[in-house]
């Protein structure tokens, strides 16, 4: 598993897109402790302070339908992993969010660059793992695993499990 770690970058999706366009291999993972300009769908910002888990994966070339399936599957995989690891009941808000106690704990964004065909694709996953608190405007709609569980979680363990599951699922759907 090729994982590129950063302390602080603008956005892991942005970095993964740049790296992919320079020929970096599929399944390379970009992780950053902090995202200065983390974003979700339609350019909405994603609060990304220290403590959370923010990563993007360079996806192999696939057709647009497979890419949509993997986006939806990613939400299931994150929810399943959180449930297995922490014995809680996350809810999936299709297709891109995972909720815990009615509040957002994870967001997923797949981005494709398309010319005459799909040039590159990345999937970005942001999980509020050890986020201590949220600004006032997010307090009612966002939560973190730490807030819900009352303890720290292991970001690395969670990351590796999710990537492995995604790899397996992608293999299955593109076969």
């Amino acid at each position: 598993m090729q994982i590129e770690n950063f302390k602080s970058i603008s956005s892991t999706n942005q970095k993964a897109k740049e790296m992919s366009s320079l020929g970096v291999a599929p399944w390379t993972v970009v992780v950053s402790d902090v995202q200065e300009n983390g974003y979700g769908r339609k350019g909405e910002s994603w609060y990304s302070p220290l403590g959370g888990l923010y990563f993007s994966i360079i996806l192999p070339h696939g057709n647009i339908d497979d890419l949509q399936i993997i986006t939806i599957l990613a939400a299931f995989i994150v929810a399943k992993t959180i449930k297995e690891f922490f014995n809680v009941e996350p809810l999936i808000k299709l297709p891109n969010d995972v909720l815990l106690n009615g509040k957002k704990v994870c967001g997923i964004l797949t981005e494709n660059v398309i010319g005459s065909d799909v040039k590159l694709s990345v999937i970005g996953i942001g999980i509020n793992t050890n986020t201590e608190s949220f600004p006032l405007e997010l307090k009612d709609i966002a939560t973190s695993l730490k807030i819900e569980l009352g303890r720290e979680v292991d970001n690395r363990e969670l990351l590796e499990k999710i990537i492995n599951e995604l790899k397996n699922q992608f293999k299955t759907i593109s076969e």
Partner: peptide
């Protein structure tokens, strides 16, 4: 490679670029 436009489609964000 210049970005023409972005298309929000099938729950994904898509950059349509110059070939």
């Amino acid at each position: 490679g210049k970005k023409f436009l972005t298309l929000s489609a099938m729950k994904m964000e898509n950059e349509i670029v110059a070939e």
